[in-house]
């Protein structure tokens, strides 16, 4: 089961849209679990964005996870990630690879060159749930696992996995303990 937890306010129809799209992409149940709060300790040094890694690690919620359940946190706040060898790049979420928790942001969606809120957020949700199932980035621009900053994200707003990723995720889900 994939559980959605909102850390900001989202219209119910947007949540419903995301749940349906994620369910269609992975064939797993996806439901709205409740609301939570962004951990204040996750704010970065400039206090302008939240450190996505800290958000996932420090969040305090009552959501109970059973076996292979996944939690996806949704926020409107801008996110950052620790600086890597390429410096800082665009960050639209963070997922624990093969783990249980991920966070995504709707920040920037609806602006020029990016898809509208519900479509973009659903695609990001499918992308980060894919990481939770150990999927890597895909070169196919139509696949939900394609990097979110590339032009393919806006050009193909449909939430779909390529054949390879779909089969891989199905294998992983079948091997799961639930």
């Amino acid at each position: 089961m994939i559980r959605l937890v909102t850390l900001s306010e989202f219209p119910p129809d947007v949540i419903d849209f995301i749940a349906r799209r994620v369910h269609a992409a992975y064939g797993m149940g996806c439901e709205f679990e409740g609301e939570g709060e962004m951990p204040s300790g996750a704010l970065d040094e400039e206090q302008s964005a939240y450190n996505a890694v800290k958000v996932v690690e420090e969040i305090d919620d009552d959501v109970a996870l059973y076996a292979d359940d996944k939690i996806l946190y949704l926020t409107r706040e801008p996110l950052t990630a620790p600086e890597g060898p390429m410096g800082r790049g665009p960050v639209d979420g963070y997922a624990q690879y093969g783990g249980g928790k991920a966070v995504i942001t709707s920040h920037g969606l609806g602006e020029k060159g990016l898809p509208p809120l519900e479509v973009g957020l659903a695609k990001r949700a499918a992308h980060y749930v894919g990481h939770l199932w150990d999927l890597h980035h895909c070169f196919d621009p139509r696949c939900a696992m394609h990097p979110g900053w590339s032009p393919g994200f806006a050009a193909y707003p449909d939430v779909a996995l390529c054949l390879f990723d779909r089969e891989k995720s199905e294998r992983k889900i079948k091997l799961g303990s639930t």
Binding site: G84, M86, Y97, H136, P147, W149, S150
Partner: peptide
């Protein structure tokens, strides 16, 4: 580099698919 896997993959793709 002692960084999370996700950060590593994003950085790898910042080089392959530069934003």
């Amino acid at each position: 580099m002692n960084i999370p896997l996700h950060v590593a993959e994003d950085n790898l793709d910042y080089a392959l698919w530069p934003p």
